[in-house]
Design a binder for these strands. Structure first.
Lengths: 206, 206
DNA sequence: GAAAATATAGGTGTAACTACCCAATTTTAT
DNA sequence: ATAAAATTGGGTAGTTACACCTATATTTTC
């Protein structure tokens, strides 16, 4: 019998997971929480075998919560849940100790499989995501932006010109131009439009 | 007794809605569908009073389906369901005849209220969305892009230069430049970065 | 402490974008 | 049928971005 706790601020999702898991005799949903704080309180009282953890939650988000849980209760196996597959979030959750990662459009079968897999201590990554992660791994060296580059990329997406960025950061125009060119090369895009798209999808802005 | 049908490709959401609505004696979930096509087949056999319709679905999406349903079965009250509040989608769904609009983070109470409201023929818009719609209404005149402008905006976000766009659309470079300038003015942004941001947040790309 | 990576800034040139004009034609709406 | 809006294209000018170099501090990393 696997004891499962769920933390998700969406009532609909919470109920859906409960209903699906109720059909399985070897899985028991012992606790449900609507946010990260009440989850942390609850865990102090009792710990489940497996924790389904939503990433987007008001207050403490899933990434923060995962870090706390893995430190205080390393024996709890965590599965991250999300409706959007933003790679940077996936990576962060895995770094924080999540054993599994699921999109909310997963089928009941996949869901159950994931719970059983992480319960044994193995990792479970939803197929479309693991493929993306592998692809990302091979191109990550070229995608690792420095602090300054991120700073400048952010200002670019905020519609500033190179000159404005230079003034704001007390740099030469040339320096900013160089950083911008390096960004274009590292991110393998052609122009500002490409930079902004990547900045948004990587969660650097907005 | 209100008969409700649900169409959503997410099993978790489907189960969640069923579980929540099962608690209410005057609401009965008569049919559930995992995609638009099976929904349309099912409706030919019998029609519910209220239809909960997901927007993002594989195959026919919610917007297409809503158009078809409202023509064939105008007596079915539709509520659009989505996890992201993209204004342009809200507007389209309402144009297609949806009486209600809900985000998937809605509470069970809101959900039930929405179903009961549209069943009487009244409109139900989830509060955060209706506020946005009102705000949008006052600024919409300046934000209403023409077909050509949208086309060009999309090509800009795909990293094409004006010259490339001109070649692709068999236009003069000047024409494209003019459209681009009009876009900058209409959307009240300063440069390409601003254009791309709006294009993404309005769901024109990606 | 040495090596690698990062941040800085300059040179030079071209391509692309932005900011104003104006006007003819076609499409859409009333 | 007429007015309004959209599409097309041109003129002129200035600014900004992009490409491809070199080079020296400074910081990080091992």
């Amino acid at each position: 019998m696997i004891n499962v706790a769920i933390a998700d601020d969406h009532s609909i999702v919470l109920n859906g997971l409960q209903k699906i898991l109720a059909l399985h005799p070897d899985i028991k949903v012992t606790d449900v929480y609507l946010n990260g704080d009440s989850l942390l309180e609850g865990l102090d009282v009792k710990q489940p075998d497996v924790l389904l953890l939503d990433i987007q939650m008001p207050g403490k988000n899933g990434i923060e919560v995962a870090g706390i849980v893995s430190k205080k209760f390393p024996e709890v196996k965590m599965i991250a849940l999300t409706n959007v597959d933003i790679l940077i979030q996936v990576k962060k959750m895995l770094q924080k100790g999540c054993l599994g990662y699921l999109l909310k459009d997963a089928s009941p079968e996949i869901l159950v499989e994931a719970i059983k897999t992480v319960h044994t201590g193995e990792q479970f990554l939803y197929e479309p995501l693991s493929r993306q992660l592998v692809n990302n791994f091979f191109s990550q060296n070229s995608k690792q932006l420095t602090r300054r580059e991120k700073e400048i990329l952010q200002l670019i997406t905020e519609e500033h010109t190179n000159q404005e960025i230079a003034d704001k950061l007390f740099l030469s125009l040339r320096t900013v131009e160089n950083h911008r060119n390096n960004l274009l090369q590292k991110l393998d895009v052609k122009n500002t439009a490409g930079l902004v798209k990547i900045a948004i999808q990587e969660g650097l802005v907005k």
